[in-house]
Amino acid sequence: MGFKLLSKLLVYLTASIMAIASPLAFSVDSSGEYPTVSEIPVGEVRLYQIADGVWSHIATQSFDGAVYPSNGLIVRDGDELLLIDTAWGAKNTAALLAEIEKQIGLPVTRAVSTHFHDDRVGGVDVLRAAGVATYASPSTRRLAEVEGNEIPTHSLEGLSSSGDAVRFGPVELFYPGAAHSTDNLIVYVPSASVLYGGCAIYELSRTSAGNVADADLAEWPTSIERIQQHYPEAQFVIPGHGLPGGLDLLKHTTNVVKAHTNRSVVE
């Protein structure tokens, strides 16, 4: 069995187990497998329904001669939608809004960016022009300005110390501490036991640490421990890039980060 097929099978099995364990909360999309990078042309966006009122959005972007996937989250909030992270750029984010209108038909009224990198804030200006209120932590807003990236308009308070959590509509926002970046936030959907790890969490097929220019490698494993301790009931975990899975993604990420750190020390 090929690795790609095995990865998709694991996603399907995880979703099936969740649907059985929580039949009222989960209505997993039966329309197909989780979209992969090879299936999404740059400039297009796919939506994948995880649970009743919960979707991931998947886009792709060219970077350094390669094409990478990027995940975000959409959560229903009454007759409105909360968006977590842009679709990595203005063109993708405009396509995301169009796809949401086509498939869901509810307005996106608020959006949260989970850290300051372009795959999370690139497209904020498109959201703002569409009347979406954009939010991020003060740290993310400051770092985005320093980096020359787009800056969300509103500040999220109460997320300055490791372990801080605040309720934001249908989700809980959690600051686990520094990891992929010093400002990275985690998003949890309690009604569906869905954990969105953003770039602080890796997919299972990833074996290298990737972009760690703004990471705190020493603190990252401790931050992941905080996530595990705060959300032990999480059933569906979405990484910032690639295929979702279960809580095993947290341990896998820790292993990859520690291996990278150990290699760096040896070198």
Rank of each mutant, 00 (worst) to 15 (best):
Met1Gly: 04
Phe3Gln: 05
Leu9Arg: 07
Ala15Tyr: 12
Ala15Arg: 06
Ala15Met: 15
Ser16Asn: 05
Ser16Asp: 13
Ser16Leu: 07
Ala19Lys: 08
Ile20Met: 11
Ala21Met: 15
Ala21Glu: 08
Ser22Asn: 10
Ala25Arg: 07
Phe26Glu: 11
Val28Trp: 13
Val28Met: 06
Ser30Gln: 06
Tyr34Trp: 07
Pro35His: 15
Ser38Glu: 07
Val42Met: 09
Val45Asp: 03
Arg46Met: 15
Ile50Tyr: 07
Ile50Met: 08
Ala51Asn: 15
His57Leu: 02
Thr60Lys: 07
Thr60Gly: 13
Gln61Arg: 09
Ser62Tyr: 10
Asp64Asn: 15
Asp64Pro: 14
Ala66Arg: 13
Val67Pro: 09
Val67Gly: 10
Pro69Lys: 07
Pro69Tyr: 14
Asn71Ser: 07
Gly72Arg: 01
Leu73Tyr: 01
Asp79Glu: 14
Asp79Ala: 15
Leu83Phe: 03
Ile84Val: 14
Asp85Val: 00
Trp88Lys: 00
Thr93Gly: 00
Leu97Cys: 03
Gln103Arg: 13
Pro107Phe: 09
Pro107Gly: 13
Val108Tyr: 01
Thr109Tyr: 12
Ala111Glu: 14
Ser113Val: 12
Phe116Ile: 04
His117Arg: 00
His117Gln: 02
His117Lys: 02
Asp119Ser: 00
Asp119Lys: 01
Arg120Val: 03
Arg120Phe: 01
Arg120Gly: 12
Val121Pro: 04
Val121Met: 04
Gly123Val: 02
Val124Glu: 04
Leu127Tyr: 04
Arg128Thr: 07
Ala129Ile: 15
Ala129Asp: 07
Ala130Phe: 14
Val132Cys: 04
Ala133Ile: 12
Tyr135Thr: 01
Ala136Ile: 03
Ser137Cys: 05
Thr140Val: 03
Arg142Ala: 14
Arg142Asp: 15
Leu143Ser: 12
Glu145Ser: 08
Glu147Thr: 13
Glu147Lys: 12
Glu147Ser: 13
Glu147Asn: 08
Asn149Lys: 06
Ile151Leu: 11
Ile151Gln: 04
Thr153Arg: 13
His154Cys: 05
Leu156Glu: 02
Leu159His: 04
Ser162Glu: 10
Gly163Lys: 12
Gly163Tyr: 10
Asp164Gly: 11
Asp164Lys: 06
Arg167Ser: 06
Pro170Cys: 04
Glu172Phe: 06
Leu173Glu: 02
Tyr175Glu: 00
Pro176Lys: 01
Pro176Asn: 00
Thr182Asp: 07
Thr182Glu: 12
Ile186Gln: 00
Ile186Met: 14
Tyr188Ile: 05
Pro190Ser: 05
Ala192Thr: 08
Ser193Gln: 05
Ser193Met: 09
Ser193Pro: 03
Val194Ser: 02
Leu195Ala: 01
Gly197Lys: 02
Tyr202Phe: 05
Glu203Leu: 02
Glu203Ala: 08
Arg206Ala: 07
Ala209Leu: 14
Gly210His: 04
Asn211Leu: 09
Asn211Gln: 07
Val212Lys: 11
Val212Gln: 12
Ala213His: 09
Asp216Met: 12
Ala218Gln: 07
Glu219Met: 15
Glu219Val: 08
Glu219Leu: 11
Trp220Phe: 14
Trp220Ala: 02
Pro221Cys: 12
Ile224Met: 13
Glu225Trp: 07
Ile227Cys: 01
Gln228Thr: 14
His230Asn: 06
Tyr231Thr: 02
Pro232Asn: 05
Glu233Trp: 12
Phe236Gly: 07
Gly240Glu: 03
His241Val: 00
Gly242Met: 00
Leu243Phe: 13
Leu243Met: 05
Gly245Arg: 03
Gly246Ser: 06
Gly246Pro: 06
Leu247Lys: 05
Leu250Arg: 01
Lys251Gly: 11
Thr254Gly: 13
Thr261Arg: 09
Thr261Ala: 12
Thr261Glu: 07
Arg263Val: 10
Arg263His: 07
